[in-house]
Amino acid sequence: MTTLNSVKRDAPLARPAPHKMSWVWLGVTPFFLFAFIFLLYPSSTIAIRSFQNTTTHVFTFDNFVHLLQNPNLVNAYWISIKISLITSLGGGIFGFLLAYSAIRGGLPPFMRTSLMTFCGVASNFAGIPLAFAFIALLSPSGVLTGWLRSVGYNPYFHGFQLYTFWGLSMVYMYFQFPLMVLVISPAIDGLRREWLEAAENLGASSFQYWRYVAFPILLPSILGTMILLFGNSFGAFATAQALTGGSINLVTIMIGAQLRGDVLGDAGLGYALALGMVLVMAVAITGYTLLQRKSERWLR
């Protein structure tokens, strides 16, 4: 039909004929309407109200000023960033080593498929069930604690605490490293065997291969995925809430407390907090997208 063919020949962003435009536009209306009402409008509410005074609705930067002046809240950002950095680095490195071992490490092929399956499940197994799984593992009545105590070593006497920053980091790693494995695998696949053989033919040592061939190729992927991990950890809420009951100072916990109506009496601060989070995430996702594009060069 002529209508279809003419659209096919036009460049994707070319201006279509006006009468076609209105008809075509109707088809995507439900989606845009849905997205506007339930996603864009609430999000823009946050953005706008964070710049407004709660009672008078006058535009002001006061909310952000108050946020930066509140040591508790600034601390919350710092702790959130800290835990995200640590788990993205730790999860990233561990995940990369795991993925590389499974794909190029000379292990039997079924280990790779098993690893992908497990990682798919593990990266979804987050939130409250995960928090409790670690409580069952390492709380003072936990199974592992019991085993260790029966061989004479009580981790709690050596300063171990589950419901703290480091305990939470350990729990976060559980869904971070599988995510790394899943996302970095295509990149490792793209590391062609011919390059390794060529390097060996030229007399390169293992270290030189990694330093001059493999890492430069993989680095954008690795960094990009680590940034994705960073965003993943920064936005986590249910896991932290279930494990610590809200006693660790994270930005997500602060926003959750705002929703409950306690901690901060000032609604404007809550909006400012939320917008701050979105900004951090936006920077993270942008970084990831840019690095992902850069790494795609090598995957072709």
Partner: peptide, 26 residues
């Protein structure tokens, strides 16, 4: 396509807690 894909990727940028915060407050 670009607009739609951008919208479908927004939930990645907006963490669930912020999204729910916006929903409830709005």
């Amino acid at each position: 396509r670009t607009a739609v894909e951008f919208i479908t990727l927004l939930p990645f940028v907006i963490p669930a807690i912020v999204f729910v915060f916006g929903l409830v407050r709005t």
